[in-house]
Amino acid sequence: MAKYLLLKHYRGAPAAVNDVPMAQWKPEEITAHVQYMRDFATRLEGTGEFVDSQALSDEGTFVRYDGEGRPPVTDGPFAETKDLIAGWMVIDVDSYERALELAGELSAAPGAGGEPIHEWLELRPFLTEHPTVTE
């Protein structure tokens, strides 16, 4: 029982095999892609492995503290070179092998030409909250 984060990137991951910007897909290919993602999440709910899924806007800004009584400083928009997260899914699975298997399936979501994107996903284990009780 371990939680993993599957991270999708707008930028910053190695290039996918079927690397065509979404704006150049056919409308029905986009529909098929969105349906695949939805079905994937539904299936994981069914297997009792789904925890969370969110998509992120590709806009954003850096923010930092700037000292007592001063408003936070912002720095944006992001430079073209910045690694940019597109969204994530959190799963709770029995093994690392199972996490790999699911990440592989998610990466097979259809893209241009109805072919799998082979998108590179980042797979990251959660640090568990509580230490094991036995020392």
Binding site: M1, K3, E45, G46, T47, G48, E49, F50, V51, D52, D92, E129
Partner: peptide
Amino acid sequence: YLVPEATMAQRISR
């Protein structure tokens, strides 16, 4: 176990 109730319900029924 810090998972949604729907997920746990499915895990149990499976």
